[in-house]
Computed example of a mutant assay.
Amino acid sequence: MADVTVHRDVVFHRPPDRESPLELDVYEPADGGADRPAVVAYHGGAWIEGEKGQLEALERALAERGYVCFDANYRLSGEATFPTPVEDAAAAVRYAEEHAEEYGIDPDRVATTGHSAGAHLAALVAAAGGGFDPADAAVSSTVAAAAPISGVYDLRDRTSETANDIERQFLGGGPDEVPERYERVSPAAHVDESTPPTLVLHGDDDDLLPADGAREYARTLAAAGRRVELGILPGGGHGIVVDPEDWQARGIETVADFLDRRL
């Protein structure tokens, strides 16, 4: 098992309208290397709470296998509404690609992953294929694979009666007020011939975000002719890969196996 070096609080994005910059942590094999695969990860917390470090077990496990992992913060919905958090997530991918030589990674072998709200960001950045980058970006946030975990992938069916307060805060209003945001925020709406290989991982006993949403997203990817693997963990709750008591080891191994084959 390889030793892991962690670089904490690395500045990756300086939003012009924000006093403090956004930071990420980098997990990499201690013995260095070149042309290594990389993974950009996003924490969960309903877009309103949480911070980097939530997925440390997953990131350390991947770094032990030779990956360089970038664990990124993003602006939460109490500070900024959509699309700002997604733009932050895309900026983390661009940072990894722009610093490929510094961290010894192959910029063509970068994937996204995340849990819950972070899974949504990972799937959306991947499916959008650079659609949340600024016009003057030096590189694109397109990625080679995605492994969202316990996420939500389609909000287009929300109505003024069914949209919850968390979604309304994240999107800056209800579907009757900002319908275009409910379309654009949905990874399923962006799936096309360029969407990269995707692992959709979910527990079938998730009582917060039912696994039916993961199954439907996998069907959407398959219908578009994209490579997709649906991983449904029997008895797994919402906390797979986060909660050591909830399929964490199996979830981490499933993600690692997928990335080993796709990057």
Rank of each mutant, 00 (worst) to 15 (best):
G104N: 12
R156V: 03
F82K: 00
D157Y: 06
L121S: 00
I166C: 01
A218L: 05
T84I: 11
D192W: 11
T113K: 09
T112S: 02
S116E: 08
V152F: 09
V110Q: 01
T81G: 12
A224D: 09
Y182C: 12
T198G: 11
A189I: 08
R181T: 12
Y217K: 05
V93H: 03
A135M: 06
R168T: 13
A111K: 03
S150W: 06
L121N: 01
L221E: 03
A122R: 15
L121K: 04
R109S: 04
I166R: 14
T142Q: 06
V86F: 05
G118P: 00
E229I: 13
D154W: 08
G114S: 03
N164T: 06
F82T: 02
L208V: 05
R109M: 04
G129W: 01
E161V: 15
A138H: 05
A214F: 03
L199T: 02
R181E: 11
E98I: 04
Q169D: 05
A138C: 04
G173N: 10
E101L: 11
L121P: 00
P197H: 04
V139M: 14
V152H: 07
P210R: 13
G131R: 00
E229C: 14
A122G: 07
A137C: 09
L155W: 06
P179F: 11
D133S: 09
R181Y: 09
A117D: 06
V93D: 01
N164S: 07
V228M: 04
H190P: 09
A222H: 15
A123M: 13
A128Y: 00
A90R: 04
D176T: 14
H99A: 10
T112M: 02
G203Y: 10
S150R: 08
L121I: 10
A127K: 00
T162N: 01
G129K: 00
D204Y: 13
R184E: 10
A189R: 08
A222S: 15
R156M: 04
A137R: 07
R227N: 11
T198Q: 05
T84W: 04
A144Y: 04
A146G: 13
D192G: 15
G213V: 12
D165G: 11
D205C: 07
Y95K: 06
E87Q: 13
G114L: 02
E101V: 14
L201K: 07
E87R: 14
A135G: 14
E101W: 08
D204R: 15
D136L: 07
A128H: 00
D204L: 13
R109E: 02
V191C: 00
A224M: 08
G129I: 07
V139W: 11
R109H: 10
T195N: 08
D106M: 15
F82V: 06
H120F: 07
A222E: 15
R109Y: 01
A100H: 03
P85T: 04
L221R: 01
S140V: 08
A96W: 00
H99E: 02
A123C: 12
D176E: 15
T159M: 13
A138Y: 02
A137V: 13
L171I: 08
T162H: 03
D207N: 12
A147W: 03
V152C: 09
A145V: 03
E102Y: 09
L208F: 04
D133E: 10
T220A: 13
P148Y: 07
P175D: 10
N164M: 06
P179R: 01
P148K: 11
A211C: 14
D204S: 08
P175V: 09
D205S: 15
G104Y: 03
G172A: 12
